[in-house]
Amino acid sequence: MKGPSPATDALMWQLAEGQDADSIEQFCTRYPELRQEVLHRANMVHRLRESKPGGTAKPFAPQLLEVRSRRPIWRTAVPAFLLAGVAFAGLALGKYLGSQSPAPVAPAPSQVRETTTSRFGDEAPLRADTRRTETSPNPSVSNDPTRSQSPDNQAPDHRDTDAKPWDAPITVKLRGVSLLDAFKLIAASGHCQIEVAPGFEDQIVEADYFGRSPGAILKALAQSLNFTVFDQEPGHFLVVPASPSTQPSRQPDELPTIYR
């Protein structure tokens, strides 16, 4: 089927868009074969126009845009950079100060590492001594009041940085405790290492020492309880059961007990 000529087609669209009933009727009278087509187009255009949606746009809030758009970017960026710089400087200062102060030493007796080696070469803890130390009510340790810091959790006074920790005076109250427990206590509070030779006989200690160095305390104990103290190296003492002349020879399989 041959369609209408371009001119007729354009006329039909014009009529459809004009929506004039009289003009459409005249066209249909002249071209009855195109009646259905022109009516169809007119109906389509009418429905297309009718289908225009209502305006339901959301309300506009330009004041929000104003705040965002008219604020120069540097007014946000500069404070942000300043804040970041302050935070970074604080972090760096904290790290620097942390690196200047040594890590705190925990001298609690329960943390004293005590090991002995059995005859089979196994390393085993001295449980009996440890329990006795933990449950013993009498011993008490305090640092010398002339020192300004506690050894537990405070940074050391930088005025004392030249003094060796094992030379620092301590105060030890030993009432009804065993000598081995006393060694642990002295080692812990004096930040030193005490090595007990094998075969050392334990004894009960009754003594108080105020403001004396661990070495001095050990030597005082040695005099009263008949054992000998050797300075092995700075902060490291060896105690043997008798005077140097009667020191027993160490058996090859017996190792000393070390209190730190």
Binding site: K52, P53, G54, G55, T56, A57, K58, F60, P62
Partner: peptide, 26 residues
């Protein structure tokens, strides 16, 4: 705003999209 919304709604598939475009335009 209504006319802008209508044009956007004619081109886009949903009213929400038309709303978005209307606000973007303004």
């Amino acid at each position: 705003s209504d006319r802008v919304f209508q044009i956007a709604r004619g081109i886009l598939p949903t009213s929400d999209d038309a709303d978005d475009v209307t606000l973007e335009v303004f």
